[in-house]
Write a protein that binds this DNA or RNA. Structure first.
Lengths: 330, 330
DNA sequence: CATAGATAGGTAACCGATTACATTTTGATT
DNA sequence: AATCAAAATGTAATCGGTTACCTATCTATG
């Protein structure tokens, strides 16, 4: 592999000049520029990105750290992030922590050590302390679905509690009398907020108590088993608010097996607005997040911090909206 | 940030000694080792990965390049790759090309320039020439679903043609008389092979011709529209082999809207064996690939090449098997 | 014509590790 | 005590870029 010194020699100039041509920076005559370009061509020279990173302490890479790529929510976010990143000449590396704190920590170290220019992260098991290093090194970190009290970084989230209210209200509107909740893991902030929204709407009903809530994983299996649990506890259940769409899909499956017709015997509302809610039969009513917007905004925030290290953090809270489909049409 | 020289000074030794302690290489007395470790502790020293990479030309990072993370097939592969990688101290960066050649090329350049230690790639629009650079630099590349004639690198694929035969045969067995095929994009090798398998089983029927085949994207929407097209062309269609599970799921949806009962009016077989085939109602019969195995094997091959630059390429062709579910039970 | 400022290009230090090679210390052997 | 190999540590070059600082040339201006 040719180095910049080889090119300099070939073109009969100094390395500084070659570097100037490479980054079109500083004064170089058209003529020398041509000579250098010819030399580059001839030697098939490719600048070494690592050496460059070491020198300027930037990599043109941003990382997107997600807890579970098998939740379609994250690929959709990723798509938006990549679109914006690519337009600005950045590359995106996706890191999947599989919900494990050890992997998260390792990735964070690795990213810091490799001079990524920014990090977009969605993770439950993330503490402020984990980001201390990054902050110290001025590596912008944007959190999704997680507002850190540390006001160093921007965050993007949605109105989860309001969404929970919307969903529950909708179930009441369509005539449900006994509404259960398949809640996400309790340490997850979004899950908690959605739960609160649900509770807000039901706390004054006399039939309502804790037994209407089952905590499950954010997964199809979680929803499936959780729904069966709810059927067992409350055979008279006629509506359920699932903390995300995967859970809702699992609940739908469970209802089918349990012999309950959706929406007539059981109305279901999910949360997120991922594509599979349109695939199921019946299609699932959901609280739609502006997923693409979230990813886009996150990446734009990263860029804002990259371009201005003194940028001030903002906490964005985006709107959600109810999309009614057959799973609640009765 | 403290550097290795700071540590050396603090511990009263040379940088070489510090490096030796860091990589426990060479001779160091227990005593100096302690002193160095204390200094590291005190200064909160973290070795700079970029500098290290520049020096040893390795990064402990391997990349997984996929065409579409929103196809659950790839997250499942990713999981396997990550599991093996992590066990061996490697980190995995996921690169999503979104099926675009320009992004693929950019990623490949970027990966080469950043000294990734290995690449696992699944991409249709990949030519041998694209890998020339990587080969030259001894960066192992393992292809999934794509056998390159260039025998420099290993490949992992499955018996796609046989799978197509299995699927079609199964449809015949359960009594289908008119069997269509929702084929993947024609430039995709796996799609082509699955098609051949389908054709093998039907070419001798006198009703069979090209009109029973519709080419679609490997997506739910693709399957949805393709199936409607098939219904229009052939109202008497009673079985369909979809080139992957997403297509099958779309077909299922279309059948529902078209008023055809699955499996009674239309039997459906998919391909891949991703989780959503168990979620749909009815669940979808599919040709199951050993997805986790594929990812695991790919990563193991990468490691084999990393540890032995003279390793010889192998072309693995794994088995597939029919998993019968309700979508063909009649 | 002298001079200042702009333009063009070069030299060498630096980013932060690794490591070949050199040097010193240790300890066993005779 | 002399000798020598093994053990321990140090020096400085190297990986391949960037860039602060320096020098030389060119042009415009009074």
């Amino acid at each position: 592999m040719a180095t910049i010194r080889d090119v300099a020699k070939e073109a009969g100039v100094s390395v500084a000049t070659v570097s100037r041509v490479l980054n079109n920076k500083g004064y170089v005559t058209k003529e020398t520029e041509k000579r250098v370009e010819l030399a580059i061509e001839k030697l098939k020279y490719k600048p070494n990105a690592i050496a460059r990173s070491l020198s300027i302490r930037k990599s043109n890479i941003i990382a997107l750290v997600v807890p579970a790529i098998n939740n379609p929510f994250f690929p959709e976010i990723a798509k938006a992030v990549e679109d914006v990143a690519q337009a600005k000449g950045y590359k995106v590396f996706l890191c999947n922590t599989d919900d494990r704190r050890d992997r998260l920590i390792e990735y964070l170290h690795s990213l810091r050590d490799n001079f990524v220019d920014g990090i977009i992260i969605n993770s439950e098991n993330l503490t402020e302390a984990d980001l201390e290093d990054l902050k110290q090194q001025d590596i912008p970190v944007i959190t999704i679905d997680r507002v850190l009290s540390n006001q160093a970084f921007s965050s993007i989230s949605v109105k989860n509690r309001y969404g929970g209210q919307l969903a529950t209200n909708h179930l009441i509107q369509v005539g449900c009398q006994r509404i259960g909740h398949l809640s996400g893991p309790e340490n997850v902030v979004t899950a908690k907020d959605r739960f609160w929204g649900y509770r807000d709407q039901l706390k004054n009903f006399d039939w309502f108590d804790q037994s209407w809530i089952v905590k499950v994983d954010f997964s199809i299996e979680g929803g499936y088993h959780g729904m069966k649990e709810l059927f067992q506890r409350h055979p008279d259940i006629d509506g359920v608010f699932a903390a995300n769409d995967l859970i809702a899909a699992g609940a739908l499956k469970a209802a089918f097996e349990w012999g309950r017709k959706v929406p007539d015997d059981l109305a279901i509302v999910g949360f997120d607005g991922i594509d599979i809610t349109e695939l199921t039969i019946p299609r699932i009513t959901t609280i739609q997040q502006p997923i693409y917007e979230i990813g886009k905004l996150a990446m734009e925030e990263v860029l804002r911090f990259i371009n201005n290290s003194k940028a001030t953090a903002k906490n964005y809270e985006l709107d959600v909206k109810l999309i009614q489909r057959e799973s609640t049409m009765r």
